[in-house]
Design a protein around this nucleic acid. Sequence first.
DNA 1: CGTGAATGTAAGCATTGATTACATGGTTGA
DNA 2: TCAACCATGTAATCAATGCTTACATTCACG
Lengths: 229, 229
Amino acid sequence: MRPSAKPSAAKSSTTKPRRRVARAAAPKPYHHGDLRRVLIDAALQLVGEGGAEAVSVREAARRAGVSPGAPFRHFPSRDALIQAVAEEAQRQFRAEIEAALAAAPAGDPLGRFRCLGLAYLRWAMRNPTHFEIISSRRLFDHDRAAAISSDNAELIALTEQTLAEAFAAGQLRSADLKQVQIAGRALVYGFARMNIDGHFPRWGVAGPEAERTAEAVLDLFIEGIAKRS
Amino acid sequence: MRPSAKPSAAKSSTTKPRRRVARAAAPKPYHHGDLRRVLIDAALQLVGEGGAEAVSVREAARRAGVSPGAPFRHFPSRDALIQAVAEEAQRQFRAEIEAALAAAPAGDPLGRFRCLGLAYLRWAMRNPTHFEIISSRRLFDHDRAAAISSDNAELIALTEQTLAEAFAAGQLRSADLKQVQIAGRALVYGFARMNIDGHFPRWGVAGPEAERTAEAVLDLFIEGIAKRS
DNA sequence: CGTGAATGTAAGCATTGATTACATGGTTGA
DNA sequence: TCAACCATGTAATCAATGCTTACATTCACG
């Protein structure tokens, strides 16, 4: 990667000789144990430090205490590593959304829609790193992207269904559910990305004020699409 | 950059010998003329081809027909080059917005607000490359970023003022202008970025359907914040 | 116990951002 | 006029990166 960006501290090398010594804690086994997982974590950490483009295979290997070529046993390319991180993040995201929706009251579809948006915003505020890597479709191979996209498509279908119920219950003023849904997605996505991209200088990232504002903005939108009493 | 991404065609080298020949069109003058401008254009082209992270100083130099070190006479770093591109884009963006606002009818503040949002969306749809490079604040040096940020701050102030006029004219239902403004920004920003990030698979980028949907979504939002008749 | 597959290492290639020393030529002032 | 200056370009070089290939080590399973 760009050389100037990585001073890259030397790794702490208290490497004992290779022979097994009883009572000494495993002095660097040849096989790492769960390198794949550790690499994903390291990559995630790198995303958090300098954005998705700051992820370097070598640096991830360095942090895992492993040779520069080792990661390629688990990921055929740098993009594949990043994609694995994205899949992990997407999994967590989806689980959170579904949990929030499961906990929402069943009687009030528009309220459920609100819960959905709120869970989205909260997760994006609290895990900006994860959200960033999910958000850009450009990072994915178009082959395996299907897995993620279908996950995403399921979430989209969920919001569509919720909106349809809300409309059936007479809670919406507009009948064009498709547009309402796109507008809602654009709103939460835009808020989350503006936060990540640094358009809200007042709060750093996350923090209670960010979440309060996010909630207020969501409520503004929902009142806007709701049928007036 | 990542080696695999750039097969990088050899440059067309019909280089005549260095000596000046009458009637032969300038056979590669030592000084380029306006290298800075050409580099910015090349970088912009690169952003369009593979995103902001695909910009490589060497490739820009290659396309400008110049040695790999030359760009550093004009930009102290790769980021500085990208930032120059961003400044150029921001200038165009701002000019477009102000033109649209100048052409908007004076009597109807909310209508002016709509024009503003529409100009924003249209520009972002038609110049996704420019918009992408403007949108991420992470690309900027925090020193010179002031120039861009202040430009942006002026635009924000413009929308705030327009909203204030709309409220004064009794066109808004909410008195919390700050939140309305943030929601509006999030909506258009989100729509534009979702388009860039590939969340709208149906239309490629731009195209009439994208713009029609953008307009419809904007109208939905504006009806949502408008006082009902 | 032994053998093959899985996983890690070492070395190397092409490419990149950046720096340095040197070459070139437009501009300007005496 | 012309020589000195300085902006701008080239050439060579360095460290870092993604990725590949050949080799080493260890685990798992017969």
